[in-house]
Amino acid sequence: MAYLDLFWPEGAVLPRMLPLDIFHMETGGCTGCALELRSLSRALVEGYSDIRFVSTPRQASLLLLTGSLTVEMAPVVELAWQAMPGTRLLAAVGDCALDGGVFTPGYAVLGGVGSRARVSLLLPGCPPSPAEILDALIRWRMQGEGGLSA
């Protein structure tokens, strides 16, 4: 407590490492990528990581999509995106989310969101392993969370 006077408002402002809150949506695939994300989320919880999956888009700063985007899910994704506060980012994980994968555009599928929207983090794989997803998330954060949108 004795050193508090070194900091703001009297002293220097320390940079604050913000936690990364991710809202995940499965938008129409086989749920393989979602299963791998579930494994990752368990590891993150056990490791007390500051990367965490949240249950509402209102708390999230990153919208992470897996699966090819179905026609029915498109308005749901839009609603979730609009519900996210402040600066928000979009990530697409897995081949289906990138370019549709095996579920190319059809009457019920619009295709991968990676080819339709400005995406900050793109990770291919069918499905990418939890280690690959975590590695991609950490690398992307190290690069200064570039590609800010909205």
Binding site: F23, H24, M25, E26, T31, A34, S41, F53, P57, V77
Partner: peptide, 10 residues
Amino acid sequence: GPAEGDFNAP
């Protein structure tokens, strides 16, 4: 649903 932030199909 369809978006609960979990890891299930919608």
